[in-house]
Design a protein around this nucleic acid. Structure first.
Length: 401
RNA sequence: GGGGAGAUACCGAAGUGGCCAAACGGAACGGACUGUAAAUCCGUUGGCUCAGCCUUCAGAGGUUCGAAUCCUCUUCUCCCCA
């Protein structure tokens, strides 16, 4: 335990909270934890359904980090059991089932990435997998657990409600999801659970189940959902996410294409910049503010050097409209190619048809000049690398293999 | 167990014998304008040896000169009744 004043701790946590159930209760627990020198057990669960953790996921993890810095104990739950089922939250269809191998692989990559935000050292953090208790539970154990929730309660969730209205299938096992997540809280005796604000229902389920088990119901702290590059909720499914595995240039570029409206949230949730400084930045030119934001994100996900480089590269490419300094080289068999085929072979387009369309649309440059002729022949021979550009972001130097 | 409706391209959704590679909308991509923002405007959106050809409308068969459209079976979903 650190000696941070509990009231101060609460104030710092509030920055990330969209809702706290209840704030009074959280305050009390922070106080009693300090008095008894007994860290709070702060739970956060993440299902290893994909290979990348993105910045949106990282928000609750940052809250976990904050709790950790305040001397509390994060309990990170890798939902290897729940991942195989799939969280129906916000879904209008069932998720595909994952195999055990996929889940294991994803779990490993998740831990590595989460380690960038949270100190995972034993003693500083507890990492659990929920297969630990769900596997031995057995069918009847599972039924006993499910008997604690009702259909009516589940139907309060509007994602289920919508699916019913739209006459989409809802499978029984999908209803099990919130109950499983709630049971995790019972198993780890969570004092607090963190989650995105779309998780509120699931977090409440944890309270309910804990009470039935005679435990003190956890405090729920939800964080606002970070919006992705297209203004929708950040999600891998939408492809609008900034991943913790993205290269610095990608991170910088993606952040720069955020909408202005979303910026304030990003400053608050994804950086450590203080409120006043953030307000000052936001009052200035949005481009400057966004540049700072992009730089901060790069520094966080990579390091300062990478951030500086990404910033310089960005200016070079989009302000001065120069070519990027590192254009990937692509080798293909030497020969004379019709332009569409060249683009396809070099991997810049998915098909020659797509290449033709882009050429007709004026989106293709050869050695810096727009080429609108579909029939253009390009010689790929010894010594002469051809600089090919498709749109604003796809570049390659094509040379013979 | 019985009855009814349905499965169309990335998604939503028209089409119900030839004029359908398939309306429309969303999304995406390219172009213009910019701050690689948003908004707006224009274009594109199955593949190819590209003014022509080839493969698509849940899957497998069938009818027909010709099928996304009709018939049979299969798989999946929704609704109603038991």
């Amino acid at each position: 335990m650190t000696d941070t004043d509990p009231d101060q701790a609460l104030a710092r946590l509030r920055r990330f909270a969209s809702e706290i159930v209840t704030e009074t209760e959280l305050g009390k627990r922070l106080h009693s934890a300090a008095d008894e020198r007994q860290p709070l057990r702060v739970k956060f669960g993440i299902d290893p359904t994909f290979t990348d953790v993105h910045v949106g996921h990282a928000v609750p993890i940052r809250v976990l980090r904050l709790f950790q810095d305040l001397g509390h104990l994060p309990v990170l739950i890798l939902g290897d059991a729940t991942a195989r089922l799939g969280d129906p939250t916000g879904r209008n269809e069932q998720r595909p089932a994952l195999t055990e191998e996929q889940v294991e692989h994803n779990a490993a990559t998740y831990l590595e990435q989460i380690g960038k935000v949270l100190d995972l050292a034993p003693g500083r953090c507890e990492v659990r997998r929920n297969s630990e208790w769900f596997t031995p539970m057995g069918f009847f154990g599972a039924l006993r657990l499910l008997s604690r929730a009702t259909i009516a309660r589940m139907l309060e969730r509007d994602d289920f409600q919508k699916r019913i209205e739209q006459r989409l299938p809802i499978h029984l096992h999908e209803m099990a999801y919130p109950v499983m997540q709630g049971w995790d809280s019972v198993e780890v005796r969570a004092d607090v659970e963190i989650g995105g604000n779309d998780q509120l229902f699931n977090l409440h389920m944890g309270r309910l189940l804990q009470e039935r088990e005679g435990q003190r119901a956890q405090v729920c702290l939800t964080t606002p959902l970070l919006l992705g590059t297209d203004g929708r909720k950040m999600s891998k499914t939408y492809g609008n996410h900034v991943a913790l595995t993205d290269a610095a240039e990608q991170v910088y570029g993606k952040v720069m294409s955020l909408s202005d409206e979303g910026m304030a949230d990003w400053f608050r949730l994804a950086t450590d910049i203080g409120e006043e400084e953030a307000a000052a930045l936001l009052a200035g030119h949005p481009r400057e503010a966004k540049g700072r934001l992009a730089w901060e994100l790069c520094r966080w996900i990579h390091d300062q050097e990478a951030a500086d480089h990404a910033a310089a590269e960005f200016v070079r490419r989009f302000k001065k409209k120069e070519l990027p300094s590192d254009i990937p080289a692509v080798e293909i068999a030497a020969g004379n190619y019709p332009l569409p085929n060249l683009l396809h072979q070099a991997g810049l387009c998915n098909s020659t048809s797509e290449a033709r369309r882009l050429i007709k649309g004026g989106g293709v440059r050869l050695d810096g000049t727009v080429v609108a002729d579909v029939a253009q022949q390009v010689e790929v021979g010894h010594g002469n690398a051809v600089l090919v550009q498709v749109g604003k972001r796809r570049f390659a130097r094509v040379r013979p293999a």
